[in-house]
Write a protein that binds this DNA or RNA. Structure first.
Lengths: 148, 148
DNA sequence: GATATCCTCCGACAAATGTAGTAGGCTGCC
DNA sequence: GGCAGCCTACTACATTTGTCGGAGGATATC
């Protein structure tokens, strides 16, 4: 994004980024965050090792920049007591999931999460176990809501 | 995004954006596209009318620019036979849904769409109609995959 | 015919994002 | 003591995205 967009008014009560509900994360930033989630806290070099294949080959300093930006945004902290700083994710995967899901539902499903659920069931290849569970769930639902 | 990212190699067979699987759409661009989906084909001025409240107040030319960019990207076409061009969405909501969903699942759910689907079914309150449809879907699935 | 309108086209510009180079500081080892 | 390596801090720069303004053409209006 860019340009003359008025910054969100920043609620007076909560304002440290971790409490906001729209985590602004670029693609690369998210990949770095994911590396942190997957590999746990680590130095720049260690984080690099956990980057997804697609992101391999980026320069050391690129990852460093990304980590610093994430820290500035409040999504990551770092322990600087050692020479090589150790970065740790502050923002959880779950948080991002919820936020992203919410955005997606709002933008493309008119806020109807139910529709999304159906869409997924239609679209995705479910495993046998999943189908079985789904079957069970549907029966429960049918009972709770006995009609048609 | 930005910087020296090598452009995706552009498959030799298909290359007209509509067939690619990652629709690059900014927030504002998506809102404009949504306006087109909601209001059907229309002129810049008409599209403006269907923009979500949050986007009200943007300048006429902003919307115009957005529409033009969308056209350049191949997501929208325009009928220029009249003075005021009439824009029409080429990319469907469904397409974007699928792409976005796929990205989300890949980035934050380890590709486990099934789990996500189940989670949603469990979590969300489905309407009667949705439950009915789900029921139907499950039966289809059971047929395709006759076991348990 | 002169004006007010409305449109499109083009150019601009700031912020965010992706990517990386360079300078300079510690560490450790011969 | 000096050099090789690794690390951080800065700076830089191209693109994308969001936002517009102004020029100039077509229309409608009086």
């Amino acid at each position: 994004m860019a340009g003359a967009r008025p910054p969100p008014p920043a609620s007076p009560t909560e304002n440290n980024a971790m409490t906001q509900h729209e985590y602004e994360l670029g693609e690369a930033e998210l990949d770095v965050l994911r590396a942190l989630w997957d590999g746990g806290p680590g130095t720049v070099r260690e984080v690099m090792q956990h980057l997804p294949a697609r992101r391999r080959g980026v320069a050391y300093t690129t990852v460093q920049t990304l980590l610093n930006r994430l820290e500035t945004k409040g999504y990551v902290t770092s322990d600087k007591s050692d020479v090589a700083h150790v970065f740790r994710a502050k923002l959880t995967r779950e948080r991002v999931r919820r936020a992203r899901m919410k955005t997606l539902v709002g933008q493309l499903y008119d806020g109807a999460a139910g529709a999304l659920a159906l869409h997924l069931v239609k679209t995705q290849k479910l495993s046998r176990a999943e189908i079985a569970e789904l079957h069970r769930l549907v029966e429960e639902l049918d009972e709770d809501n006995p009609n048609t």
